[in-house]
Computed example of a mutant assay.
Amino acid sequence: MTEEAPEAERFLALVAAAQEGDPALSPIQAAIMVAADLGIARDSRTFARVLGIEHALALRELNDLAEMAGYLTISKRDPRTLRTFYQPVEDGS
Score class of each variant (00 low, 15 high):
residue 80 R to N: 10
residue 59 L to H: 03
residue 30 A to T: 11
residue 49 R to E: 15
residue 62 L to F: 07
residue 54 E to V: 13
residue 32 I to K: 03
residue 83 R to I: 04
residue 60 R to Y: 14
residue 80 R to Q: 14
residue 62 L to D: 01
residue 90 E to G: 03
residue 5 A to Q: 12
residue 52 G to K: 07
residue 3 E to W: 12
residue 66 A to K: 05
residue 63 N to Y: 12
residue 2 T to A: 15
residue 69 A to E: 11
residue 32 I to N: 02
residue 33 M to P: 00
residue 37 D to C: 07
residue 21 G to L: 07
residue 13 A to P: 09
residue 67 E to N: 11
residue 85 F to H: 13
residue 69 A to R: 12
residue 42 R to G: 12
residue 70 G to N: 00
residue 52 G to A: 08
residue 65 L to P: 11
residue 46 T to M: 05
residue 18 A to T: 08
residue 39 G to K: 01
residue 53 I to D: 07
residue 16 A to Y: 08
residue 34 V to T: 00
residue 19 Q to A: 08
residue 55 H to I: 03
residue 59 L to W: 08
residue 93 S to T: 09
residue 71 Y to G: 02
residue 88 P to I: 12
residue 83 R to L: 02
residue 7 E to Y: 14
residue 2 T to P: 14
residue 53 I to H: 03
residue 69 A to G: 04
residue 83 R to Y: 00
residue 20 E to N: 03
residue 89 V to G: 03
residue 78 D to S: 06
residue 92 G to F: 01
residue 8 A to T: 14
residue 26 S to W: 10
residue 22 D to H: 04
residue 79 P to S: 08
residue 75 S to F: 00
residue 1 M to I: 11
residue 27 P to D: 06
residue 25 L to T: 10
residue 62 L to N: 01
residue 43 D to S: 02
residue 83 R to W: 00
residue 9 E to F: 10
residue 16 A to T: 15
residue 52 G to R: 05
residue 87 Q to L: 11
residue 82 L to C: 02
residue 54 E to K: 15
residue 84 T to V: 04
residue 3 E to G: 15
residue 26 S to H: 06
residue 81 T to G: 00
residue 52 G to C: 05
residue 83 R to D: 04
residue 2 T to F: 12
residue 83 R to C: 00
residue 35 A to W: 02
residue 78 D to Q: 07
residue 34 V to I: 15
residue 80 R to S: 10
residue 4 E to K: 14
residue 29 Q to K: 03
residue 32 I to M: 06
residue 28 I to K: 10
residue 29 Q to T: 03
residue 11 F to N: 09
residue 80 R to E: 13
residue 76 K to V: 04
residue 13 A to D: 08
residue 3 E to T: 15
residue 83 R to A: 06
residue 91 D to T: 12
residue 22 D to T: 06
residue 13 A to C: 07
residue 6 P to F: 10
residue 4 E to D: 14
residue 64 D to T: 08
residue 90 E to K: 05
residue 89 V to F: 06
residue 49 R to Q: 14
